[in-house]
Design a protein around this nucleic acid. Structure first.
Lengths: 134, 134
DNA sequence: GATAGAGTGAGTATCATTCTCAGTCAAGGG
DNA sequence: CCCTTGACTGAGAATGATACTCACTCTATC
């Protein structure tokens, strides 16, 4: 099917990473699969997830889970965190990350090779506060 | 009616909360359901999840998601965070939380009523680092 | 009692993710 | 040139956690 020159070790992972970098916000596995459909870089859903996991293990993408269970992916270098409503699920990005992995002592790291972190705040958004009072 | 004081609004929710407080570590919805089976406090799986969501919305329990997609619940007052291996999924609790919600400015909060936060670090555990090199 | 409303749970539906497995490709040997 | 080997792929099925449905059961009130 695909006879590409042996330039890069893995073209599909590169495509996924570029897609994530191009995107204005985090994407789910389903999003990525849908966006690539009908393009020359199209790939099956299983392949998307396979490579996302590998990219994550190589520290190139980070991943967070919505309350809905959906996982969202973004490039690791984008250090963005969120405020999420536990009622309606609405998510607001926070402008800056008040936290860095350096804050962990070697003893706390316990031999782990740190790849990324997620810091998520949960609460009730203004609309859901209103609705609950009404 | 919600006219009654919120101290003991619902016996089943109380049971779930007590179960979580008694437990040495976080529990999933399935765990809670299984642990209560064959006790006087037994309740259906649907009821467990219903009440867990309500407890979360009232700020009484926090919830985090494992890479496997499973959600783990703990009482909010237990301010525990983790180091998780993105390969094998092993999780190590961190002794202290280097982060507090107070670190968010009112402007950042954007009207949200803050309930809890999750701070999770991801990396490769020593065993998985070895295995990947071998 | 009769009635209304909230709470419940067994079974089913949903949906993201993972698994299976047969097909395809690339490289190297004979 | 075949032929083997191994890695990669993806369609479809399996998995598993969670949400939904709806008939049933309490409880309180009339």
């Amino acid at each position: 099917m695909e006879a590409s020159p042996p330039a890069t070790p893995n073209g599909k992972q590169q495509h996924l990473l570029e897609q994530l970098r191009r995107a204005a916000h985090e994407l789910s596995g389903q999003d990525l699969h849908a966006q690539l459909r009908n393009t020359p870089q199209a790939m099956g859903l299983a392949t998307v997830y396979r490579h996302l996991r590998q990219l994550q293990q190589r520290g190139l993408v980070r991943c967070r889970h919505l309350p809905s269970g959906e996982a969202l992916f973004a490039p690791t270098e984008r250090d963005e965190h969120h405020l999420t409503c536990v009622d309606c699920g609405r998510t607001v990005p926070l402008p800056a990350c008040p936290m860095h992995g350096d804050d962990l002592s070697p003893q706390q790291l316990d031999g782990f090779q740190l790849l990324f972190h997620t810091l998520e705040f949960f609460g009730l958004c203004p609309l859901c506060q209103q609705r609950q009072q009404g």
